[in-house]
Design a protein around this nucleic acid. Structure first.
Length: 565
RNA sequence: GCGCCCGUAGCUCAGCUGGAUAGAGCGUUCGCCUCCGGAGCGAAAGGUCACAGGUUCGAAUCCUGUCGGGCGUACCA
């Protein structure tokens, strides 16, 4: 496909004198106008002519330079249409040759991208809120991997901080009232909620919590640390069940505690940069020069560290270890200020790699009643969402495809796919109100719709193989009515590049939905089997190419592509 | 109060780096299984792109202000 756009650019460059790389080639508003468009407005000033006149003059001259591509002036645009047979053969041979890694590139060669994702908190259940960071981060990682980057996905577990003092205190006091080993997460949640209920009227409890965290941070390997270690292990085991269902793996699981040994050195490093000061008993980095921002606190009055200190320790450690090209923090938008502060600390330290640290923020997920709150017990558990979605898928399979083998497995793929896709389909920054009906919807702009399209294409492929059809010489010109599909396949590598750059998986979901709509329209109108040898041959090639593309994109998004459903 | 994010059809959202007549899905209404899977396809209805200015050949897109919603705002994470 890039061979077509390159030919157009070169021809235009030769005629206009503008550098080929600076020419903007876009898609026409209406596909009937052509496959590519060149808006002539940019030339109006230098040539001192009206854009439509320029387009008209360019038409003939550019046509003389092009072979297999027709240029036609329409108003102020010069539109290009690739010969249908050339387009079909070019695109399909390209994707066939690339196979499963179609869209890969070498733009990331020798570059490392660190992705901080998921990062659930120990002792808290994973809510549908944590799903966002996990699936968005995993998709961003796969995108970069496809583009040739070395990627390091780090699960930055929230296993440190004053809340663990509270939790240890709560376990000490009421641990025997719950079934910690049998149902660890729910037990810990109950203790956590109870702590917050009682702390207001119980100064001793508050003190016990503080003391416990202080001991934890002191490095003393006593009972507090043993309790903390046990809580961590229990929680991680529970999280792994979810990660397995989501098909997410991490290169490194490093909790905040991992960076604990580096905290002092981190503070020293910042102090050595001469940007710290003591204020109200705390050690801070002032940030007023950046628009009156609140300061970044490194040490509390009691000497213990904060979230920001640990994140700074982490980013230094990551820089030292990976010299990353990008370090992406897939963390909710409620922490925008936090990351701005961190970046400004780096700026004040005059570290030139500061821009490589990026906060990949995403909108908040809210319940109809308001924000989710673990403390108040107002959460929707991710496990329940996945379970219900899989059950729903199972019901639909029972109704529509009762003979399906391994239907339980497929129901899991479809149910989880629906949940994951739903979370990836809109622009990251948009807030989401959780809605069961939407999550459990399998029609329209959904993961199951895409999976279904894939399954139907697979079905056609199976039938063709059984009938021994489709192996003849393809009649490429017969794919004229499939031009939108072919152009979309051709555009896919650019979609991946743009989506990775913007760290925006919704660009892939959006592409995929539009693609499947085109494919479904086409297969409703163009029967594959039982046509002349050339027609069946070319159509089957397109069916297989489309199926391959859908599986490819679903893989990047983290969804399965079942052959039947 | 101040800062950041968001505001496009009844609902949920696209709209590529400022370009041609603002597009999908859901819902509503009407069609399509003797024909490769109806989780599908086709069609209709539905819009002051929150509002007001500005920038220019051209603005849903960029700038300023207003309104509405969300998030945050020194020792939680």
């Amino acid at each position: 496909m890039r061979t077509f756009t390159k030919a157009i650019r070169d021809a235009l460059a030769a005629e206009t004198g503008i550098d080929a790389s600076k020419l903007v080639i876009e898609s026409p508003r209406d596909s009937k106008l052509g496959d590519f468009a060149f808006p002539c407005f940019v030339l109006a000033k230098t040539l001192k002519k009206a854009p439509p006149a320029i387009a008209g003059e360019l038409e003939e001259r550019v046509n003389a330079r092009l072979d297999g591509i027709a240029a036609k002036a329409t108003g102020p645009y010069l539109n290009f249409t690739v010969d249908r047979a050339t387009l079909a053969r070019g695109v399909i041979e390209e994707i066939d040759a690339a196979g499963d890694v179609y869209g890969e590139s070498d733009e990331g060669a020798d570059k490392t991208v660190v992705i901080d994702l998921s990062s659930p908190n120990i002792a808290k259940p994973m809510s549908v809120g944590h799903l966002r960071s996990t699936v968005i981060g995993a998709a961003i990682q796969r995108l970069h991997k496809r583009l040739g980057y070395r990627t390091v996905g780090i699960n930055h577990i929230g296993d440190w901080g004053s809340q663990f003092g509270k939790l240890v205190a709560a376990v000490d006091r009421w641990g025997d009232t719950v079934d910690l080993d049998g149902d660890p997460i729910k037990s810990l949640l109950a203790l956590y909620v109870r702590y917050h209920e009682e702390e207001a009227n119980d100064p001793e409890l508050v003190q016990a919590g503080r003391d416990a965290f202080k001991e934890l941070e002191s490095g003393e390997d006593g009972r507090v640390r043993a309790t903390w270690r046990k809580l961590t292990e229990l929680s991680l085991r529970e999280f792994d069940k979810i990660y397995e269902r989501l098909g997410v793996e991490f290169d490194l699981v490093r909790g905040e505690a991992f960076y604990e040994p580096f905290l002092d050195a981190t503070v020293d490093r910042i102090v050595a940069a001469n940007i710290t000061e003591e204020s109200e008993g705390a050690l801070i980095v002032a940030l007023d020069e950046f628009g009156d921002l609140p300061p970044c606190l490194l040490r509390k009055t009691d000497g213990t560290t904060l979230y920001a200190t640990r994140d700074l320790a982490a980013v230094f450690h990551r820089w030292d270890e990976f010299k990353f090209h990008r370090c992406l923090y897939v963390v909710g938008g409620d922490q925008r200020l936090h990351f701005r502060q961190l970046k400004h600390v780096l700026t004040r330290m005059q570290l030139d790699w500061e821009p490589r640290m990026e906060h990949i923020d995403f909108g908040m997920l809210r319940l109809p009643g308001g924000k989710m709150s673990t403390r108040e017990g107002r959460v929707v558990f991710l496990e329940d969402v996945l379970d219900r979605a899989a059950e729903e898928a199972q019901k639909i399979i029972a109704a529509k495809n009762p003979d399906l083998d391994a239907s339980g497995e497929v129901a899991e793929q479809v149910g989880v796919g629906a949940v994951v896709f739903n979370d990836l389909k809109r622009e990251r920054v948009k807030d989401i109100e959780f809605d069961w009906d939407e999550v459990l919807s399998f029609e329209g702009d959904t993961g199951p719709y895409v999976q279904y399209t894939h399954a139907r294409l697979a079905s056609i492929g199976r039938k063709a193989a059984a009938a021994g059809e489709g192996s003849g010489t393809p009649d490429w010109a017969a794919l004229e009515d499939a031009a939108p599909i072919l152009l979309a396949i051709g555009r896919y590598p650019d979609v991946l590049t743009a989506a990775a750059r913007a760290a925006e998986p919704s660009q892939v979901t959006g592409f995929l939905i539009a693609f499947c709509r085109e494919v479904n329209s086409w297969i409703a109108a163009a029967r594959v089997l039982g046509q002349s040898e050339g027609v069946t041959g070319s159509r089957l090639r397109l069916v297989n190419a489309s199926k391959s593309l859908i599986a490819n994109a679903l893989g990047i998004l983290g969804l399965s592509a079942p052959q039947e459903m």
